[in-house]
């Protein structure tokens, strides 16, 4: 089946099987390997991307269901000049990553949260990360990074 969508602002298309998952289309066909497959059972959140502005687990969405959609992946998060976005910079500043495997999903979930709620409290952040698992158990600094990003004045503009 033919599928076409917009990924990180650019048109992307390809031929897929009905059963091809969005995460495999992104990784194997578009070579956007920043989106990770952690569990493949929609538990871990390493594959979170935005689909039409909403966070989804790309391992639990068929590529054909993303036909015509706007997809944003971790590769689309940096600023146009290549510098890190506010959230990414906060993760670096606050050591919000250890092995880094969960980080793309964490950053995409954080971005989805701050888009809806630019100034969440710690409890809200922890609740929102319910579906993102860090097996290094580095949650404390991830939450600190997101809190710090939310205090950055420019976050509301992103």
């Amino acid at each position: 089946m033919d599928v076409s969508m917009t990924v990180n602002g650019r048109p992307a298309s390809g031929k897929v099987e009905g059963r091809t998952l969005l995460v495999h289309f992104l990784r194997d066909d578009l070579h956007l390997t920043g989106t990770h497959v952690g569990c493949d059972t929609s538990q871990c959140g390493a594959c979170v991307v935005h689909m039409d502005g909403r966070p989804v687990k790309a391992c639990s969405v068929l590529a054909v269901e993303a036909e015509g959609a706007e997809i944003l992946t971790i590769e689309g998060m940096a600023n146009p000049d290549g510098s890190l976005s506010v959230i990414q910079q906060a993760f670096q500043d606050h050591h919000g990553l250890q092995c880094g495997f969960c980080t793309p999903g964490m950053v995409m979930s954080a971005a989805a949260l701050l888009k809806d709620d630019p100034h969440p409290d710690e409890r809200t952040i922890r609740d929102y990360l319910d579906g993102n698992i860090c097996r290094c158990t580095g949650y404390h600094n991830i939450v600190k990074a997101i809190l710090a990003a939310s205090e950055n004045a420019s976050i509301a503009a992103q």
């Binding site: 959140g45 979170v48 909403r54 966070p55 969405v61 949260l113 579906g131």
Partner: peptide
């Protein structure tokens, strides 16, 4: 229900 990404779908 579930988590934010599940609730999106």
């Amino acid at each position: 229900i579930g988590d934010p990404a599940v609730r999106s779908r």
